[in-house]
Amino acid sequence: MKVVRDRKVVEDAWQLVTDDEAAGDHSIVSLARWNAERDALLAEGKSAGVVIRSGESPDDVEDLERAPLVAVDFPAFTDGRGYSTARLLRSRLGYKGEIRAIGDVMRDEMFLMHRCGIDSFAVKAGKDIEKALTAFDDFSVTYQAAADDERPLFRRVHR
């Protein structure tokens, strides 16, 4: 499927699988399954990712650094828990891999998601993914420290 990564639309092999489905290369599995089966999921050079749903804590992901991708689920774009999840992954747990927004992902939230450390976006079906790229230019100035820059504006520039 197509996703936005590094400000580009790219084809991508990652697949979200339910706990009942077989996992193959580039499967994204639930947190419980990751914690239980990660050795098998990563065997023979396979890639596997883990999804953190709203209400789940990034602190509960075991061997976080072994996951090349963590998906953060936004069940509705008005459910903002994923922003804290991403921020904690990046800023507090020091996660260096790819963080992907999945679920109700639209361009109007992508600027904020990006600031929280999310670097790829599975834009929801029915929305023009090419147009979504403009989201990153919504603002050229930000006030706060966030995952994209851990300095607030007053430490970045001389005001």
């Binding site: 774009f77 008005t78 459910d79 903002g80 922003y83 804290s84 921020r87 939230e109 600027f111 904020l112 998601m113 990006h114 600031r115 929280c116 603002f139 930000t142 006030y143 706060q144 966030a146 607030p152 504006l153």
Partner: peptide, 13 residues
């Protein structure tokens, strides 16, 4: 005010 303006983590409380 500045801290809260478009705070990326807290737009959908």
């Amino acid at each position: 005010r500045q801290w809260s303006t478009f705070h990326p983590e807290f737009a959908f409380l």
